[in-house]
């Protein structure tokens, strides 16, 4: 399968601060990718690099087979809705659609009009008078009416109430089913990610600590509980992400490619939220480093 986004050694530095470092990604086409991580982890930076709103300090990034922001063809392939779903407050909805039609070669006017109608928005209303949910829906409408191959959404639902959030995600999923567009969306809400995404990228302190197909990730992680034990005595292919101990009991979250057969452990499944939290808690566990490396 072709990659819709490919990054190698990608990094971005603002003054002395690395917002994104040494990022390697291969996102297959046709997926809905959830981008999670604490504030300041580099989510927005990655999205703006992919959109071509920003240029990398190091490494390279390829989006839909081209360099982000490299020309009109490239811009037409990528839809980007920045944080807080910006619109032009002084322009009406109809004017937004006219602007979209003038600026985007692949603009689908019928789709845009139909969506505005279905959302019950008055085309004569100015964007500044819309509620947060309506504004997000307008931004999404423009994003999908340009018929991109990849839709980048930076925390699209963060400011929305639960009802508006559900409405937004419903429309997004309908679009994915209809158009087969690839989506990368950042969010703090792992429950949303679990529902709508099938691929996960976790960023912590400017680095990718976990990336992959959500089903594969869940299948490869296990919660082990059993009598107290030193995690260092585990088989080599079981990699500890988090460990906690009481006097008698040890609880581990491990990544293991093969099934856990040790009868001393009670093996449990790990939910996506717990998995993400484990990596946020101990991002260093993500990349197993051999002890020898310390000598370098």
């Amino acid at each position: 399968m072709t990659a819709v986004l490919r990054a190698r050694g990608l990094g971005k530095r603002y003054r002395q601060q690395w917002a994104l470092s040494d990022c390697a990604l291969d996102i297959p086409a046709g997926r809905v990718v959830g981008l999670v991580g604490p504030n300041g982890a580099g989510k927005s930076t990655l999205l703006s690099l992919a959109a071509g709103m920003n240029t990398p300090t190091t490494g390279e990034i390829e989006v839909c087979g081209g360099k982000p922001g490299s020309g009109p063809d490239q811009l037409a392939k990528v839809g980007f809705v920045a944080q807080d779903t910006p619109t032009y407050p002084g322009l009406t909805i109809a004017e937004h659609l006219r602007l979209g039609a003038a600026l985007n070669p692949r603009w689908d006017a019928a789709l845009a009009r139909k969506r505005v109608e279905r959302l019950g928005l008055d085309p004569k209303k100015r964007a500044g008078q819309l509620s947060g949910g309506q504004r997000a829906q307008l931004a999404l409408t423009i994003g999908i009416a340009k018929r991109p191959e990849l839709l980048l959404l930076d925390e699209p639902v963060a400011a929305l109430d639960p009802l508006a959030r559900r409405g937004f995600l419903q429309d997004l999923m309908e679009t994915v089913a209809e158009q087969g567009v690839s989506v990368v969306l950042s969010s703090h809400l792992v429950t949303d990610v679990e529902r709508v995404c099938d691929y996960l990228i976790t960023l912590v302190s400017s680095r990718v600590v976990l990336a992959g197909d959500i089903e594969d990730l869940l299948a490869a992680h296990h919660r082990l509980t059993g009598p107290r034990r030193d995690p260092a005595t585990l088989p080599a292919d079981q990699h500890v992400i988090t460990a906690s101990h009481t006097d008698r009991q040890t609880t581990l979250l491990v990544r293991a490619e093969s099934p856990i057969i040790d009868p001393a452990w009670t093996v449990g499944k790990v939910g996506l939220e717990d998995l993400v939290l484990a990596y946020l808690e101990s991002p260093d566990a993500a990349t197993p480093r051999p002890a020898l490396e310390v000598l370098r």
């Binding site: 809905v32 559900r166 995600l169 419903q170 429309d171 997004l172 999923m173 309908e174 994915v176 089913a177 209809e178 529902r195 709508v196 995404c197 099938d198």
Partner: peptide, 14 residues
């Protein structure tokens, strides 16, 4: 599939 994905707000692949 499209209608279920839209109604439940879940990934169509699911």
């Amino acid at each position: 599939v499209k209608d279920v994905a839209a109604q439940l707000a879940i990934n169509p692949n699911t």
